[in-house]
Nucleic acid binder design. Structure first.
Length: 305
RNA sequence: CGCGGGGUAGAGCAGUUGGCAGCUCGCCAGGCCCAUAACCUGGAGGUCGUGGGUUCAAGUCCCACCCCCGCAA
């Protein structure tokens, strides 16, 4: 007999694990909980979370509670008699009384090696900080954010040219591969959770676009990591001629520029910017407000002045 | 109708108060050179997003529409 799951998710990270669980006969997703539809994009059209259509395609009931704290949500979730809740990139805190509903508790798949990088931007934080490895953690949720005891960890090395998007995809795959067996073992009682070492905990915040504004007074290597880490979300940018210029790709350069820190200089077909430690970063791909993404040589083609 | 920028040569851009459509790169041909992605000379390539309107004359002014993008989510 298969385990009855209610699956909580919303972000992109939640898609793949859900597909895997759907195709695994050991589990039955009896309902999906996701965020409400929101007006999105340039024309403010209403858009559904990614997993909503996936659920509807399979004929699975979808709930989009405005507040998980509400009595309505509590009563609905209680009535469904699930064995366990599985939460992946859901975006709302799970209230204690909801955690108490399923007899086997609430299991979370998280994109870092807990207790390192508790919070919403764990993938970006790992790259931006220069960590050598990242990974996924499957844990049992308790009342505090990413604080509960751990069932399983899977390590994934961070590569020298990794972007947030690249690492994100790998972690998503790894998490999806590992989740079913770990979940099954846990539900059968084969593995038991072990407490996190809370002294080692680090935290990362939810990122907004404004966080992608580059502070050129920082060291070049740090900025280079930030550019990779924040690609594609929230992206990095700087002001140029009163316009917003997205920095899509950059690398450390051996060339020098005599312009002040943070000012763009063009030498030998390279776009150079001096950083706070006097080292120079070469921008290799960028996008100007209103324009399409450009390799640096194309930007230089039209550059005047 | 959430706010805003933009569609001009293959690419990226300029085009002033309407008055012969330009720049950098690329492409083609020739030259220089031991040689070259470097340099020199010449050349091809545009119904200026689409449809109307104003005017002797519209890339430029007016109206409508299509498409791309930044903010915001």
């Amino acid at each position: 007999m298969s385990h009855r799951i209610i699956y909580f998710g919303a972000g992109e990270f939640s898609v793949k694990p859900m597909q895997i669980l759907l195709d695994d006969s050991r589990f039955e997703i009896i309902a999906v909980v996701t965020q409400p539809d929101k007006p999105v994009g340039r024309h403010q059209k209403m858009e559904s979370p990614l997993i909503k259509s996936l659920a509807e395609k399979r004929g699975i009931e979808v709930f989009q509670f405005e507040k998980l704290k509400s009595d309505e949500a509590y009563q609905k979730l209680s009535s469904l008699t699930a064995d366990v809740f599985v939460v992946v990139s859901y975006g709302q805190i799970i209230p204690q009384r909801v955690i108490n509903i399923p007899k086997m508790g609430v299991i979370n798949l998280h994109g870092s090696l807990l207790p390192r990088w508790r919070g919403a931007s764990c993938v970006q934080a790992a790259i931006a900080t220069g960590d050598e490895e990242s990974g996924v953690t499957i844990m049992k949720i308790d009342a505090l954010m990413d604080h509960g005891p751990i069932l399983h960890k899977e390590v994934e090395p961070i590569r020298a040219n990794d972007t947030g998007g690249m690492l994100f995809r790998r972690l998503s795959s790894i998490g999806s591969e590992v989740l079913p067996d770990v979940l099954d073992d846990y539900l059968k009682g084969t593995i038991s959770p072990t407490e996190q070492n809370h002294d080692l905990a680090t935290y990362c915040k939810i990122l907004k676009r404004e966080d992608g504004k580059i502070d050129w007074s920082k060291p070049a290597e740090e900025i280079e990591r930030l550019i990779r880490a924040y690609d594609p979300w929230p992206g990095t940018w700087t002001e140029w001629n009163g316009k917003r210029m997205k920095i899509l790709s950059a690398c450390l350069s051996a060339l020098n520029t005599h312009k002040p820190v943070g000012m763009i200089d063009i030498i030998d077909n390279a776009i150079l910017i001096k950083c706070g430690d006097q080292k120079v970063l070469e921008i290799t791909k960028l996008q100007l407000e209103g324009g399409k993404p450009l390799e640096s040589i194309y930007f230089i083609s039209g550059y005047r002045g």
